[in-house]
């Protein structure tokens, strides 16, 4: 019973914060609401016994990515006044599309057979030890490759963002 209550509270929070992200006029608010949303998702991860991911999620998203976003917002001096305005028709169309998307996705999920499902008594698959075992045995090479990806992304970001010297 407790877990259901916690789930509903977390789910309501994440949906609400996600909506605020979309509807906030000021980009700073959007960023802050997105951070809230990420925290609730981290809560879901803990509910699912995925402690490792929960921690990584908070560090990477809330800690790194969102800080980067905030800095960009400040760097570009974005605020409510500079926010471009869209016609109402556009907004309605976007909402209808989003709603339709939801409907279609839910419908296709309903038609998907999940198979006979028995709730596992207890799963330790998300523990740091287990994830680490898989990550450093089976997925060692891709894991090492991510460092190459990061180097490439870093260099790319520097090249793109640096002032062009004529």
């Amino acid at each position: 019973m407790n877990s259901q209550i916690i789930f509903f509270i977390l789910a309501a929070l994440s949906i609400m914060s996600a909506l605020f992200v979309v509807f906030s006029k000021n980009p700073i608010y959007s960023v802050i609401w997105l951070i809230v949303c990420f925290f609730t998702i981290a809560g879901h991860y803990i509910m699912l016994n995925a402690q490792f991911l929960a921690i990584v999620h908070i560090i990477v998203y809330a800690g790194a990515i969102m800080v980067l976003m905030l800095f960009t917002v400040m760097l570009l001096n974005l605020n409510k006044a500079t926010e471009p305005h869209k016609p109402l028709l556009y907004k309605v169309a976007a909402m209808v599309s989003g709603g339709l998307m939801l409907l279609v996705l839910l419908a296709s999920m309903r038609s998907t057979e999940l198979g006979p499902y028995a709730a596992p008594a207890y799963s330790e698959s998300g523990f740091v030890q287990n994830v680490g075992m898989v990550l450093f045995t089976e997925f060692l090479l891709p894991f090492e490759m991510t460092s190459v990806l990061f180097i490439a992304a870093m260099i790319g970001a520097v090249v793109l963002a640096k002032k062009e010297i004529h």
Partner: peptide, 13 residues
Amino acid sequence: MVIGMMVFMFIQL
């Protein structure tokens, strides 16, 4: 793009 995705999923449904 979104409409296209929806059409595909609709067809699949």
